[in-house]
Design a protein around this nucleic acid. Structure first.
Length: 300
DNA sequence: TTAGGGTTACAG
DNA sequence: CTGTAACCCTAA
């Protein structure tokens, strides 16, 4: 009937995660009012955020408090089957402890000082999508705009531009993004074209909430490790275990980084090529225009 | 406003 | 039919 169940998009989930990292879990209203996330979450309510976060937590856990209650209500008899542990980390978690100490989520700074590189590498993949989504530019956003957006919001590594180029290229060849006229937009592959119940634009939804300006006062560093650490905390792991997870995340990031770095060279070449082609095309266009338009002949 | 229990729509 | 994700209701 009237409520066609709006499924959460990866972009929305990413925004929610970022919002939780920034403002903390439970501050749903705050997250919603944050200009950074209101762009993506403008049609979700604070309750929606809460529910979604609950769902995601359950997923990350494998067996949240909710399912436990549910299972307790229906199944009991017969020996408890030893279900496989989704976590590679051996210790604990299996026992039904409900210690999801939320206070740990509000830690002032990441206690897990990751060894070696202090490169803050937020999963570029999602970040790019987030940027394009949040920018909401009709026709997509160009590389510079995306780069500026991300650099404004997060700490960017020195070679960030190259990485971005590489990723952008990868995504376009991959079909995840569509590049048209040096602008990139998200390729909605037959999935979401007309979702959303009320297609009304955000307009002046939040009087003070929807301004193009971003609060730079608290630029904060979003790390994949940090997010993973949060999730680990939700899983009820100890700090050490969480640290392992976080470290692992960083390792992955490093690997991805190296890979991207390698691809960057080719990407640069491609960029140069494209640039040249563009210039050539522009020149050709100009010439063509001048010829086919005798009236407005170039000379004054 | 939020947390949590309950309900409904949807996919497998 | 069953499990899950989105949605709803309400106490605190």
């Amino acid at each position: 009937m009237g409520a066609p169940k709006q499924k959460w998009t990866p972009e929305e989930e990413a925004a929610l995660k970022a919002g939780v990292v920034k403002h903390g879990a439970g501050k749903w209203r705050t997250i919603l009012k944050d200009p950074e996330f209101s762009g993506v979450l403008f049609l979700r309510s604070n309750v929606d955020l809460k529910d979604k976060w609950r769902n995601m937590s359950v997923m990350a856990n494998g067996w949240g408090s909710r399912e436990k209650a549910r299972l307790a209500l229906r199944k009991v008899p017969s020996a408890p089957k030893a279900e496989e542990n989704p976590l590679s980390l051996g210790t604990a978690v299996q026992s039904d402890d409900e210690t999801v100490d939320t206070k740990a989520l509000a830690l002032p700074s990441n206690p897990v000082q990751i060894t070696g590189s202090k490169r803050s590498f937020s999963r570029l993949d999602n970040l790019i999508l987030e940027a394009i989504t949040n920018l909401k530019e009709p026709g997509g956003s160009n590389k510079t705009t995306i780069a500026t957006y991300i650099e404004d919001q997060y700490r960017a590594p020195p070679n960030f531009k190259r990485l971005l180029s590489a990723k952008l290229k990868f995504f376009t060849t991959n079909g995840k993004l569509v590049k048209v006229k040096r602008k990139y937009r998200i390729a909605h592959t037959q999935a979401f074209s007309e979702r959303r119940r009320n297609s009304s634009m955000p307009f002046l939804e939040g009087r003070q909430g929807f301004s193009p300006k971003v609060d730079k006062d608290d630029i904060h560093i979003l790390t994949k490790a940090q997010v993973d650490f949060e999730l680990a905390q939700m899983r009820g792991m100890t700090a050490e275990e969480a640290a392992i997870v976080a470290a692992r995340a960083v390792a992955e990031a490093e690997a991805a980084l190296a890979e991207a770095e390698e691809a960057a060279r080719e990407a640069d070449a491609a960029e140069a090529d494209a640039e040249a082609a563009q210039a050539f095309a522009a020149a050709a266009m100009k010439t063509l225009k001048g010829r086919s338009n005798p009236k407005t002949n170039g000379h004054p």
